[in-house]
Nucleic acid binder design. Structure first.
Length: 305
RNA sequence: UGGGGUGUCGCAUAGCGGCUAUUGCAGGAGACUGUAAAUCUCCCGUCUUCGGACAUCGUAGGUUCGAGUCCUACCGCCCCAA
C-alpha cells in the first residue's frame, strides 16, 4: 500500500497561537509551512494581519505569505490550486507538510475541495454589477429567479454578495449555479490531520485585546496609510484596516477606531469558532500540551503503515 | 442634622399620564462551495410548543379609567450647608 503523506493543518481562531505551534511542528519534522490566510497572502500588511515575522520565517519556510500585491484578485479556489501545487515539493523533504491559517473556507477548499465552476469574466462581472446598480438587489434577485430558481428558493436573499455571485456563475456557465454545486468531498492523495489550540473565551479575548494594542504600538496606523495610498482594494476590506480608513476619513476618532478593531477581531474569532464547531475532524489541544499532543498524533499516523 | 438632586437591562442613555419602554456600548447564537479578516441572519427581562405567554423602570403604598412618568413614606447614591 502507498504511504500517503500527511497534511498537518493548524487552525483555530485568530490570536490562539497557531503560528508558534506550526513553526515548532515544522522545525520538528524538518518541513515547511503553507499559510492558509486570506490576508497574510498580501504584501504590505504584516502588522495588521499578524503575519509571521522575519525571525519566525527564518525558523520555518512559509509559503503564500506576502506573495500578492494588494490589488491582486485572490480566492479560496486559487488557494486550493496553489496549495495543491506546492505541497508535493514539501513532501519530497518530509512526510509531513504543515498548513497554518484561520481562513476556514481556505482550509475547507484544500481539505474537501471546491466544485468546478467557471471563472467569472470581467464582462459578466460588469454586467451583473450594472444590474445591481440600476435595478438594485431586487433586480438581481429577479434575474436569479429566472436563471436558477432552485438557488433562488434557498439563498439568503439579504445577502447581496451571494445573490450576485450565483447570477454571475449562472450566466457565465450557461447552467444554473446550483447545478454545479455537487457538495462532493474531494479525494486527496494525502492524510489530513487538523489541530486547533483551545482556549477559554476570556483568555482568547484577552490575547486579542493585547495583540491589537501591540499592533498599534508597532505602527498599524502608518501601515494602513501606506496601504490605502495604493488604492481602496478588497484586500483592505479587513479588520484593522477598514477601521483605520474610517478614522482617516474623520468618521471616528483614533481611540474609537482602535476599540472597533479589537471588537471586530473578537467577532471574527467568534465566527471562526462557529465554523470550527461543525468540523468534528479538528483535534482540540490544550495550550500547554499542544505541541506534544500534535506530535504524538502525527507520529502515530507515521508509524501506522 | 437641614436643603437640593437622583434611582430605567451587565454599563451608559431616551422616555410632554395613554399603543409593543428608546438608543448606544458590551455580550450571545447561527449561516457559509471562487473577493470569506468578506457577506448575511437572529437573540440580548423570564418562560416558550417560536405563535406567543407573563413580567418589569430602587421598595411599599396612594391618586387616576390608565403611572416609568404625579403624590407620600422608606432605602441607596450624589451635591450643598453644618
Amino acid at each position: 500500500m502507498d504511504k500517503k503523506p500527511i497534511l498537518a493543518v493548524v487552525t483555530g481562531p485568530t490570536a490562539s497561537g497557531k503560528t508558534e505551534l506550526a513553526i515548532r511542528l515544522a522545525e520538528h519534522y524538518g518541513t515547511e509551512i503553507v499559510s492558509a490566510d486570506s490576508r497574510q497572502i498580501f504584501r504590505d500588511l504584516p502588522i495588521g494581519t499578524a503575519a509571521p515575522t522575519a525571525e519566525e520565517r527564518g525558523r520555518a519556510f512559509h509559503h503564500l505569505v506576502g506573495t500578492h500585491a494588494l490589488d491582486a484578485y485572490y480566492s479560496a479556489s486559487q488557494f486550493e490550486s496553489d496549495a495543491l501545487a506546492i505541497l508535493p515539493s514539501i513532501w519530497k523533504k518530509s512526510p509531513v507538510a504543515v498548513v497554518c491559517g484561520g481562513s476556514m473556507m481556505y482550509i475547507d477548499a484544500l481539505c474537501r475541495g471546491l466544485d468546478d465552476m467557471p471563472t467569472v469574466s470581467d464582462s459578466t462581472r460588469a454586467y451583473v454589477l450594472s444590474m445591481l446598480e440600476n435595478h438594485g438587489l431586487e433586480g438581481v434577485l429577479a434575474q436569479l429567479e429566472i436563471c436558477d430558481r432552485d438557488y433562488w428558493l434557498q439563498v439568503d436573499r439579504s445577502n447581496t454578495r451571494r445573490v450576485v455571485h450565483a447570477v454571475e456563475i449562472s450566466l457565465e456557465a450557461g447552467v444554473p449555479y446550483s447545478s454545479l454545486r455537487t457538495g462532493r468531498v474531494a479525494e486527496r492523495p494525502f492524510r489530513i490531520m487538523k489541530f486547533a489550540i483551545e482556549r477559554s473565551r476570556d483568555e482568547l479575548f484577552g490575547r486579542i485585546n493585547a495583540r491589537v494594542d501591540r499592533m498599534i504600538a508597532d505602527g498599524l496606523e502608518d501601515e494602513a496609510r501606506r496601504a490605502f495610498a495604493q488604492g481602496d482594494f478588497n484586500s483592505l476590506n479587513t479588520v484593522g484596516y477598514k477601521e483605520m480608513a474610517a478614522y482617516f476619513r474623520g468618521e471616528m476618532d483614533f481611540d474609537t477606531a482602535v476599540a472597533r478593531i479589537a471588537k471586530n477581531t473578537r467577532v471574527y474569532a467568534k465566527k471562526q469558532l462557529t465554523w470550527m464547531s461543525r468540523d468534528p475532524e479538528i483535534m482540540r489541544l490544550a495550550p500547554a500540551e499542544a505541541f506534544d499532543e500534535a506530535v504524538k498524533a502525527i507520529d502515530a499516523q507515521l508509524t501506522e503503515y
